[in-house]
């Protein structure tokens, strides 16, 4: 069973694509970081934190009348930024800052660690930074 519902997965995918956005190189979800996180959330017992945090992001986006995943990238960034700076209103079941920090840290882990962990498909991020694996 997945640790998150469909809505939460949609929110997760949008959020991680702001943590590592697409440029000449793929975004976090393009390289499999959502799948990486789903496995990690289950194995590390983080379902409750992630559910609460992703619901919290939607709570904030409702103030703009939309689901988080339907917002523009700029609007998504400003919500994430408010979480980082502890400037979101009360009503979250988890500390917004704590959730944001975890999300950012673990997305970066997925994107830049080995592809065996499920993110960094095709070792694309390693090609991007210039880390080659031989032997």
């Amino acid at each position: 069973m997945l640790p998150l519902n469909e809505d939460q997965i949609r929110t997760l995918t949008s959020a991680i694509d702001r943590i590592v956005p697409a440029d000449d190189y793929p975004s976090a979800s393009d390289l499999g970081c959502a799948d990486f996180l789903l496995v990690l959330i289950a194995s590390e017992g983080l379902s409750e934190t992630y559910r609460a945090g992703l619901d919290g992001l939607n709570l904030e986006s409702q103030k703009l009348g939309q689901k988080f995943s339907d917002l523009t990238p700029e609007a998504q960034d400003s919500i994430l930024s408010l979480c980082e700076k502890r400037r979101v209103a009360a009503g979250w079941a988890v500390s917004p800052r704590k959730f944001f920090t975890l999300l950012a840290r673990q997305t970066v882990e997925g994107y830049y660690a080995d592809s065996g962990n499920g993110g960094n498909r095709g070792e694309v991020s390693w090609r991007m930074v210039g880390f080659e694996v031989r032997g």
């Binding site: 943590i19 590592v20 980082e84 970066v108």
Partner: peptide, 8 residues
């Protein structure tokens, strides 16, 4: 920053 285009 710990995220976003500047981090990348």
């Amino acid at each position: 920053p710990m995220w976003g285009q500047a981090h990348k």
